[in-house]
Design a binder for these strands. Structure first.
Lengths: 336, 336
DNA sequence: CAGCCAAATGTAACTAGTTACATAAGTTGA
DNA sequence: TCAACTTATGTAACTAGTTACATTTGGCTG
């Protein structure tokens, strides 16, 4: 193996030397080829090919001040609600030539701060996070770097960062109200961990309706199918009477539905079920689950566009409230 | 608004000037703080704070030659099988200080080549792709740039890039064989688009078992719950007789299961069902679906480690075959 | 108190591009 | 035929860091 073969990547100067031109000319071939005569252009192209030259992204970035990278921090990729959001976000950013770095936090503010630091280290031009509850380290980082950052899945006009999201409390109240209107008064509420999760807390707060005779029984569990199944088992064996189950996310509702099915209970004739998210599965399951539609695809688009305006034109976006609607399906029966 | 406020980010020189030291000293405070006296260090730190100084990632990268970014190209984020893979990949890469840029291709080789180019443009140190079927543009790009690239979800020792994945043909044959062993001879096969998808094609090829009396009826559909539901409707109304359904992915199987349920057919007493993927939902659904477990989390880890060795130590990984196993659950009945 | 060494800091040359400005060559018109 | 202009190319100074090497400073020893 000769010295030459082990040598590192060719740079602009190497190409210029090989083609017998100046670095400026090579740069022109790359960026404004029409400004270079066909003859020289071909010669430079050939040198580029034979040296396997690929321009350094870092060197370009240092000049333009742009990395064209946006970072997103989400609790997990395992819940389709985030995957769908990221999918829309990635697509829309891509339309504007921006790339998306995804970092998962497992819902841990410490990990979030760490990964946010890393995203900044790699030169992310903007950050997208979930919710408005973050660690002091994270808050300091954002205020110190003044990096364009948008909080999603949560609307709060008073927050220090622009928020693009929905009213989580309203979403759960809509679901609850539907149960109430159908005559339900004893309701098991199955929700994810409330610690460090302002979306969950907001959804729980939305259930604090002061109504005589209304009883809710809360069961906390992890947001997985299995978590939903375990929680409804607990609810059933707790001996409390309830005619309906309300889940704070569709993954839980799906787990509940499966477990009820397994136990021989039929939705909605034995128990009613409502939820929040409206993942595709809630439209396909049997019965279809009545759930509050969270427009995460729309949120992804709006977030992407807001980010683009912010980093491209320096216009800090206003917070945006995205409307939610209750999707009526077959999982709720009237209590007569 | 004064000139000063609209000015752009502070750089090393600005900090040095403000602290009354040289750029080298500021750089030392950042990288080897112990080499700087407490006094100067504090002074520099203060200047950094007050100027909101954040070191430029690009300038760092230009010196180190490292961006610490890895790019992954997947067909979609909407299928949990890819989300789970990326999740494991991101986690493992993160342990080594690498960030993951995710790009979706919608299974289109043209988009894949485009996004690969963009990943290279932003300085990705390595690429991870799905399968071994790519556009000529993509192939040229990889061979020209010699960028470390690993093909996943597919094992093929003879491919030009290292592959880390499973034997897709074997996976589907395992599922089929299980049906055959249970006495099934008429089998509806529901699969995703075979165009541009070598995983699907390999899975279909695994079904070409030469066995007297064995009949398979193929139905192509899009890989969504709804796609599965539509396909099984078509299979039922096609008038062909089958005692079992084999799906090439769990999302389809789930759609089939829901639709069969909707039609009042019971799995497995009326129809048996097998699949490939082993998403969590197949363990929770009723009945649990017998499906071939694809170890995507393990694949994510192995891919991450291979990438790290490649870019960190220059050791190009060998292809790795990851074993698949049939996960027995309750969706298959014996034909007697 | 000179001499020596280590610690602290500075100078300037790197990394790999882009680009303003200068210059050379070739074309056109008076 | 020479000024005026266009076109093509080169020179060198930027971008924002890192780092090898040089220099200064201070403490300790003989």
């Amino acid at each position: 193996m000769t010295e030459k073969e082990t040598k590192k990547r060719a740079n602009l100067r190497d190409v210029a030397r090989a083609a017998g031109v100046s670095v400026a000319t090579v740069s022109r071939v790359l960026n404004t080829p029409e400004a270079v005569s066909k003859n020289t252009r071909d010669r430079v192209q050939q040198a580029i090919e034979s040296l396997h030259f690929v321009p350094s992204a870092a060197a370009r970035a240092i000049n333009s001040g742009r990395t064209r990278v946006v970072g997103a921090l989400v609790p997990t990729l395992d819940n389709a609600i985030f995957a769908r959001f990221l999918s829309a976000l990635e697509y829309e950013l891509g339309e504007f030539g921006l790339s998306l770095v995804v970092a998962t936090t497992a819902g841990d503010p410490g990990i979030e701060a760490e990964k946010a630091q890393r995203l900044i280290d790699i030169g992310a031009e903007a950050l997208i996070v979930s919710g408005i509850t973050h660690s002091p380290d994270f808050d300091n980082l954002i205020s110190r770097t003044r990096l364009p950052t948008i909080a999603t899945s949560y609307y709060d006009d008073g927050y220090s960062l622009p928020t693009i999201g929905y009213d989580n409390a309203r979403a759960s109240r809509m679901a609850l109200q539907y149960l109430i209107d159908a005559g339900h008064r004893q309701i098991a509420v199955i929700h994810g961990p409330a610690d460090n999760n302002d979306r969950t807390r907001a959804r729980l707060s939305g259930l604090l309706v002061d109504m005589p005779g209304l009883e809710t029984f809360k069961f906390e569990t992890k947001i997985t199918l299995e978590g939903g199944a375990t929680a409804i088992q607990n609810a059933l064996s707790a001996g409390t009477h309830f005619t309906a189950v309300m889940c704070t996310s569709d993954v839980l509702a799906q787990g509940v539905l499966f477990e009820l099915h397994r136990q021989g209970m039929v939705v909605p004739s034995n128990v009613s079920l409502v939820s929040i998210d409206d993942l595709p599965v809630s439209g396909q399951s049997v019965p279809g689950i009545t759930t509050v539609h969270l427009p995460v695809v729309e949120m992804g688009k709006k977030t992407a566009n807001a980010v683009i305006r912010w980093i491209e034109d320096g216009i800090r976006p206003d917070s945006q409230l995205i409307d939610v609607t209750l999707k009526l399906r077959q999982s709720v029966a009237e209590i007569t």
